[in-house]
Computed example of a mutant assay.
Amino acid sequence: MKTYALALDLKDDEQLIKEYEQHHRAISPEIRDSIQTAGVIDMRIYRLGNRLFMIMVVADDFSFEKKAAMDAGNPKVQEWERLMWKYQQPLPQAKEGEKWILMDEIFSL
């Protein structure tokens, strides 16, 4: 197993943040299944203000490239991603079209 941490910002709007959280409390089985099928064992998202942190525990054979290819071919995931983009905004370090940014681990106990 491997663990990854990623960051992303939400648009700094209280109502949009509330809606974003509501969507995540009612995530569809198709989206949940697509995450698990890609090899994600556990996924958690935390929020501080409009900053999000995602912790992903993944199987040894997980790859972001494989997940991206699976997501690109899944209409439900594409619909979800379009909806989420209403609430999200890229970090200043993001490349064109990039959402979640992989964080560097700097300490482990």
Rank of each mutant, 00 (worst) to 15 (best):
K2H: 13
K2Q: 11
K2E: 11
T3V: 14
Y4H: 07
A5I: 05
L6D: 03
A7W: 10
A7H: 10
L8T: 00
L8W: 12
L10S: 04
K11A: 03
K11R: 12
D13S: 00
D13W: 07
E14L: 05
L16S: 09
I17L: 05
I17H: 05
K18W: 10
K18T: 14
E19W: 09
E19D: 14
E21G: 00
E21M: 03
Q22L: 07
Q22E: 13
H24L: 07
R25L: 12
A26N: 15
S28M: 06
P29G: 01
I31A: 06
R32M: 12
D33G: 00
T37P: 01
A38T: 02
G39K: 04
V40K: 01
I41L: 11
I41E: 13
D42C: 00
M43G: 03
I45N: 08
I45L: 15
I45M: 15
Y46L: 10
R47W: 13
R47A: 01
R47F: 13
R47G: 04
L48H: 14
L48V: 08
L48N: 13
N50K: 06
L52T: 06
L52S: 09
M54E: 05
V58S: 00
V58H: 05
D61S: 06
D61T: 06
S63M: 05
E65W: 06
K66N: 13
A69T: 15
A69M: 14
A72T: 04
A72Y: 04
A72H: 09
A72P: 02
G73P: 10
G73W: 14
P75A: 02
K76V: 08
V77R: 13
V77G: 01
V77M: 10
E79I: 07
W80S: 10
W80H: 15
E81A: 09
R82S: 07
M84A: 11
W85R: 04
K86G: 00
Y87S: 03
Y87Q: 03
Q88F: 07
Q89N: 02
P90G: 08
P90W: 11
L91T: 10
L91N: 08
K95D: 13
E96P: 02
K99Y: 13
W100Q: 07
I101E: 08
M103N: 11
D104G: 00
D104L: 02
F107R: 01
S108H: 12
